[in-house]
Nucleic acid binder design. Sequence first.
DNA 1: ATGTCATCTTAGAGATGA
Length: 250
Amino acid sequence: MRLATWNVNSIGARLPRLLPWLEAVGPDVVALQETKCADNAFPYADLRALGYEAAHAGDGRWNGVAVLSRLGVAQVSASLDGHPEPRLISAQCGPLHATSVYVPNGRALGDPHYAYKLDWLAALRERLESADPAQPLVVMGDLNVALHDADVWDIRAFSDSTHVTPAERAALQALLDWGLVDVEARPGKGEFPFTYWDYRAGMMHKNLGMRIDYVLATRAVTVRDAWVDREARKGKGASDHAPVVVDLDL
DNA sequence: ATGTCATCTTAGAGATGA
């Protein structure tokens, strides 16, 4: 089975890149984030033509998450206690339970959105209590946390920044401690497995990126390979995130 | 690091978020 997670930064704008990518890479289950799309505008028909059923939660301009599956989508849930924004959706995809998450950015230390981010991550951890870490389950998405110093291009540039604070890292570690493994992709260019490069200031060209997109899997899943598709971040009309692709056995 | 991108408001450029 092949999985992928991709923050597409608007599925409407990205459709000319997303559809050929799905055909070329052929993932069985895909988590998308930042669809920036209302449910009634989601391109279900285009995806169905490629063999994907979709579960989407979105209300338009911001956020929006989806699970695409060639193995069906059942038991769809987009609820997270106390957090109505469309930032999480989960579905049973054949033998695998898959969740797509778009963790709040946090904006800046001291900003109310930073506290909101930590609350949101705590709610996600609490939500795991209703699942079983002995079952095949993945949480995939844009976590907006760099777990290790090596997950950003220069930790010294992040001394007063979100994404690397002990509190954010502890919130991510709490997800792992429940029973999830951080499926790290093979190192990419410069030995860094980055998944995101800011559009501004030539960050992609200079490989000044961050690893903030994750596949987290229970130990019931056997990982065969994992990589970041940097090609999808290049050229005209790219998202600012690259997809993470994981091959696994159940 | 802040050189971009996408969307919405509301008719053309500004605000917002990342």
